[in-house]
């Protein structure tokens, strides 16, 4: 969908007050994986606030990316319990599989690899999130299967 139309739709759905900003931003991320400058400007216009205010808000939240991201955003928990349970191995496995480093996106724009803080599954660490999906008790084997599944999933 064209970005302007998407934002118009979201503004109609959630409203045009400042307190509707975050649901709208989330809606854009849901569709586009990130919020482009064009999108931020359009949101600012719809909500009658300044573009700097939209930008300031986006950059506060880890999930409101302002840079392009892949179709599947992988977030690996780097907090203490997962750290103890083998976070390093998870990251190196993912880096090997995807041939990118933490913070990067694959050339084909399918995967982005990010770190995140405690995901609330410490008893089943190490843990990662792929978009909204949680994967617990990760092992290199498990990770290979998960990634293979997403790689197959062409659409």
């Amino acid at each position: 969908m064209e970005i302007k139309a998407l934002i118009f739709k979201l503004a109609e759905k959630y409203g045009r007050k400042r307190e509707n900003l975050i649901p709208i931003l989330q809606g854009v991320v849901q569709e586009e994986r990130y919020i482009s400058d064009e999108a931020m400007v359009e949101i600012a216009r719809q909500l009658d606030i300044s573009a700097a205010q939209v930008y300031g808000t986006c950059t506060f939240y880890s999930f409101l990316n302002t840079k392009p991201k892949g179709k599947y955003i992988i977030r690996v928990c780097e907090t203490i319990v997962c750290d103890m349970r083998g976070k390093k191995e998870v990251i190196s496995t993912l880096e090997d599989l995807l041939k990118i480093k933490i913070g990067e996106t694959t050339h084909n724009k399918r995967f982005s690899l990010l770190k995140t803080e405690c995901l609330g599954w410490c008893h089943k660490g190490p843990v990662m999130l792929v978009n909204d999906e949680v994967y617990t008790e990760l092992t290199p084997e498990k990770i290979r299967n998960i990634i293979a599944k997403y790689k197959e999933n062409i659409n």
Partner: peptide
């Protein structure tokens, strides 16, 4: 339901409220 967007500090009650108001937490 109001969905957060990845920020620990938004658990602090006044930051949470700011966040619900569409602002930085």
């Amino acid at each position: 339901i109001f969905l957060g967007s990845g920020s620990y500090i938004c658990g602090e009650e006044t930051a949470l409220i700011e966040s619900m108001e569409g602002k930085r937490g």
